[in-house]
């Protein structure tokens, strides 16, 4: 297995479920009604089932059990509905255990959902950032790992030598040894799936937000969400914390280590409510 065959595999990537893409477009459109969304989604049973499970998780906190898609659509706002549909859809890409990254089943999904939630908490401190884009990019930021895993497994020793002896971050070692890192693969998946540019950009640069580009808020928020999630030990695997800390991103937004602590403490309340979403993985 090498990077060429990985890129070839990528051409065969199953499309993002059309019904979901349609539903998300409808939710963004002022001319469509909630019932239009139900009409599109209801024929996909797997997605409908997941959407209901996510709705009924403590995290989204609806009183009483939501038992139909119609009821979910009526009771939820468009923004929440979008998050729930995406969460219920994206989980299937994270289902497998990953030998290369040493992540057991559930680990990467736990990391994805946690990063999305932490990123959303952080976005409150970034006025003007699109929270929906932050949540989506948080969910998808590591999706490239699912494709890159087998090559990482094969070349792990070579990569880990660079990390251990030359001070590379794990992502830099991926670039050096494999020619591409998981963030780039994930961004290409996002492109193939037709995700908006800012989400693809955030996936591509979630380890290295371009310096000097202070306007790129979604990427910066997801960067911080990811590193905080790793510091908390959620879905870390054998890359460990070999990830660069980018001080200037905190500085630019007037944040320091105390803010990180407040974000972590705030996340923990939410984390206890996402167990049933994690169990979907």
């Amino acid at each position: 297995m090498d990077i060429e065959s990985i890129l070839k595999d990528l051409e065969q990537l199953p499309p993002f479920p059309t019904v979901v893409a349609q539903a998300l477009t409808l939710l963004d459109s002022p001319d469509s009604s909630a019932m239009d969304v139900v009409k599109v989604v209801q024929y996909d049973q797997a997605i409908t089932a997941n959407v209901l499970k996510v709705c009924n998780s403590a995290y989204f906190g609806l009183p009483g059990k939501v038992s139909s898609l119609r009821e979910a659509v009526i009771r939820l706002g468009n923004k929440q509905l979008k998050e729930i549909i995406l969460t219920g859809t994206v989980v299937k890409y994270y289902k497998n255990a990953m030998e290369g990254y040493a992540l057991s089943k559930h680990d990467l999904w736990k990391h994805a959902i946690s990063t999305a939630i932490i990123s959303r908490i952080i976005s409150k401190r970034f006025p003007g950032v699109d929270e929906g884009a932050v949540f989506t990019a948080g969910l998808l930021h590591d999706v490239g790992k699912t494709i890159l895993d087998s090559v990482v497994d094969e070349y792990f020793n070579q990569m880990f030598a660079l990390v251990g002896e030359k001070g590379y971050s794990f992502t830099e070692a991926e670039q050096e040894v494999l020619g591409l890192d998981h963030a780039e693969i994930g961004a290409r998946m996002g492109e193939l799936w037709g995700f908006p540019k800012e989400i693809v950009h955030a996936i591509r640069f979630h380890h290295a937000p371009p310096e000097g580009d202070e306007s790129d808020l979604v990427t910066q928020v997801v960067y911080l969400g990811n590193v905080i999630c790793l510091m908390l030990g959620i879905g870390v695997g054998r890359q460990g914390l070999h990830v660069r800390g980018r001080d200037e991103i905190l500085e630019q937004h007037g944040m320091d280590i105390n803010d990180l602590q407040v974000i972590m403490a705030g996340f923990l309340d939410e984390y206890q409510k996402v167990q049933d979403i994690i169990d979907l993985g």
Partner: peptide, 11 residues
């Protein structure tokens, strides 16, 4: 800790 020499992230 992360790779962060100045310790901004060093909880």
């Amino acid at each position: 800790q992360l790779m962060d020499e100045s310790g901004f992230f060093n909880i």
